[in-house]
Design a protein around this nucleic acid. Structure first.
Length: 586
RNA sequence: GCGGGUGUAGCACAGUGGUAGUGCAGCGGCUUCCCAAGCCGCCUACGUGGGUUCGAUUCCCAUCACCCGCUCCA
């Protein structure tokens, strides 16, 4: 499918417009037109109905408890400190200044490996000494290479870098390394000293060991003369790290000062977390239960691309499902499966839908497990994320407890009521202690299915776009463009068409139109040839057309014309609404 | 943010240093008993801002937007 054709259709028929188009547009922002807003609203309504009001039964066949909230976009800035966004959104970037390379990197993903001749340094302290007062011989023979850590262990990356260095310097057979300074996690933040063994291909064929230091670029105690590019390996090519703040800022109050700086939320989830206690206290809900929210979120993407896929303003459909720690994996699997099934149910072909369990190394720091539900969009050869179902553990609630000082733990009243308290022998202190921890009191774990409303809308548009052939009035096959939306999502459910504009047909058609529009978004059209009107409806994905013709005047029946099959059948005009209802439910 | 490309009507395309056409779509009418038919009429554009020039849609510069690649997407 050709993305450009879809984009043209969306504009021509009023699904999606560029924001502020008459002023030349604005990068990363889009508007939904009359048909687009109906489509997106149907998607959000379907989600709310299927996830909040009527979610599928739980893992043990039980009813699922779900409620909704609608939180403000601007929140107390401390929320973003607690959530980690205030810091985490400041991804410092470094760029290579070398002409022809000019690559851009996240500074925290660039690490430096310094390789020294054997015996120059034997531990981290000596590394610092060498940097402070390098001996000529050591400085001449040491070298620093940069590596980009994307996946795998950092040690493995460093090993690769040393191996590459060895090859470049005709050192054969990198053999092994020994780590000095503890576990990987210990050095993940501060670097590590280690030794690598290899054989240098020199005239005397001397055996050779390297002393190596691996450390992050950010904070590395390096002279500016180092910092090579991880791609082109040009020395001293990287710029200083520059902050890219991905949160939109504004000010609450007319005066623009640091004190009243606020942020547009980069996700709707935090509104749910900070209202966890409110919901618990106001609803009589007991764990497990979920809180859902649909709303706008904002991210100052460095480079919006691919139509509406990566917009700076977008809408999320998020659930935070709170449960007992011991049951969290069960619920994680439940939501992962429920969410995937939902997309299939609404017409996304299974072969373009890819649930993908994230590897350990790409998980966010707080997540125990995440499944990305991805869709193979026409604009990319790689599937792109529609939704992430994340097991966030107790990270968020714990963070908000720390930063707000409020108790967000959950107490199992019923379990405590049923518990045998005789084991405490009437010791109130022991009882209190037992009540304060598992299994009675705990910080709930959270499963977060977070879906992009605009991304799914785009996927639905891509999935619906079809070019096929339909016969014209002479029976010759003509190209036809048809949007095969699931009827539940179709912006217009049915068109009501008088076959000709006379003999009382428009009157009958309008009466039917007035009846149907009480229930659905339907469309009345008496303009032009019938074939043209059918094709127009095909192009905007209207599943059914009801046509009032000569026979209607005789026996009160109309034709129902199907968008996908082009088949026509007659049914009594009095049964049209019931037939639509029946078809929408299946 | 970097490199490359593009920008004429709602869409797809012509064209020119002397201010622009075509097809489709849209609108109004006639005609039409089932799949973009026909006839008549109508509407709509040189992305924006500078510069050069007697005159710029055309040449130059900047800017904005879109597309491709890199990068990013917590």
């Amino acid at each position: 499918m050709d993305m450009e054709k879809l984009v043209a259709l969306c504009k021509r028929r009023g699904f999606i417009f560029q924001s502020s188009e008459i002023y030349g547009g604005i990068n990363g922002f889009w508007d939904y037109g009359p048909l687009g807003v109906e489509l997106k609203k149907n998607i959000k309504d379907a989600w709310w109905q299927d996830m909040v009001r009527n979610p599928p039964p739980g893992p043990d066949g039980q009813e699922i408890q779900m409620v909704g909230v609608d939180c403000s976009i601007i929140m107390n800035p401390k929320v973003w400190v607690a959530s980690g966004h205030a810091a985490g959104f400041q991804d410092p970037m470094v760029a290579c200044t070398k002409e022809g390379c000019k690559k851009l990197f996240r500074a925290d993903k660039v690490w430096l490996v310094t390789i020294w001749p054997r015996g120059t340094v034997t531990n981290r302290a000596e590394v610092e000494n060498q940097r402070a007062k390098p001996t000529i011989a050591a400085a001449a023979r040491s070298t620093t290479v940069a590596v980009q850590l994307d996946e795998g262990s950092v040690i493995a990356q460093a090993e690769g870098a040393v191996r590459a260095y060895g090859q470049k310097n005709n050192v054969i057979a990198f053999k092994n390394y020994t780590v000095d300074g503890g576990s990987e996690s210990a050095f993940a933040s501060q670097g590590i000293f280690f030794r690598a063994r290899g054989r240098e291909h020199v005239a005397e064929a001397e055996r050779y060991d390297f002393d190596c230091v691996l450390e992050p670029l950010v904070g590395a105690s390096y002279a500016s003369g180092v910092k090579p590019c991880p791609i082109c390996h040009t020395a001293a090519a990287l710029t200083e790290p520059r902050a890219f703040n991905l949160m939109f800022e504004s000010h609450a109050g007319a005066i623009q000062s640091e004190e009243n700086k606020v942020y547009l939320r980069p996700e709707t989830a935090q509104g749910i977390f900070v209202n966890f206690k409110n919901v618990l206290d106001s609803t009589r809900l007991k764990l497990p239960f979920g809180i859902a929210q649909i709303g706008k979120a904002f991210r100052n993407e460095i480079n919006p691309r691919n139509y509406t896929f990566r917009s700076r303003e977008f809408e999320q459909m998020e659930i935070e499902f709170f449960c007992h720690p011991d049951e969290s994996m069960k619920w994680y699997e439940y939501w992962r499966d429920v969410r995937k099934a939902w997309y299939v149910k609404l017409g996304i072909k299974s072969d373009k839908l890819r649930p993908r369990e994230q590897g350990r190394e790409e998980l966010a720091h707080y997540s125990i497990g995440t499944t990305d539900i991805e869709y193979l969009f026409p604009f990319s050869s790689e599937p792109q994320e529609l939704e992430g179902v994340a097991h966030r553990g107790d990270y968020d609630l714990t963070q908000h407890m720390k930063h707000s000082g409020k108790d967000l733990t959950y107490f199992e009243e019923e379990l405590w009521a049923k518990a045998d308290k005789s084991i405490y022998g009437g010791d109130k202190k022991k009882e209190q202690e037992a009540k304060s921890k598992l299994p009675y009191r705990y910080v709930p774990h959270v499963i977060e299915p977070s879906a992009g409303a605009d991304r799914f809308t785009l996927a639905v548009l891509c999935e619906a776009y079809c070019e096929d052939q339909a016969p014209d009035e002479k029976g010759v096959l003509q190209d036809r463009v048809v949007m095969k939306f699931h009827p539940r999502l179709a912006p217009i459910k049915a068109a009501i068409l008088p076959l000709v504009n006379k003999e009382g047909m428009p009157e009958i058609a309008q009466k039917l139109y007035r009846e149907l529009k009480q229930h659905w978004n339907v469309f009345y059209d008496d303009g032009g040839a019938i074939g043209r009107r059918y094709r127009r409806q095909d192009e905007i994905g209207t599943p059914w057309c009801f046509t009032i013709d000569g026979q209607t005047l005789v026996d009160q029946t109309v034709t129902l014309r199907d968008r996908d099959t082009l088949k026509q059948e007659r049914l009594p005009i009095a049964e049209v609404a019931a037939e639509m209802r029946r078809r929408l439910q299946t």
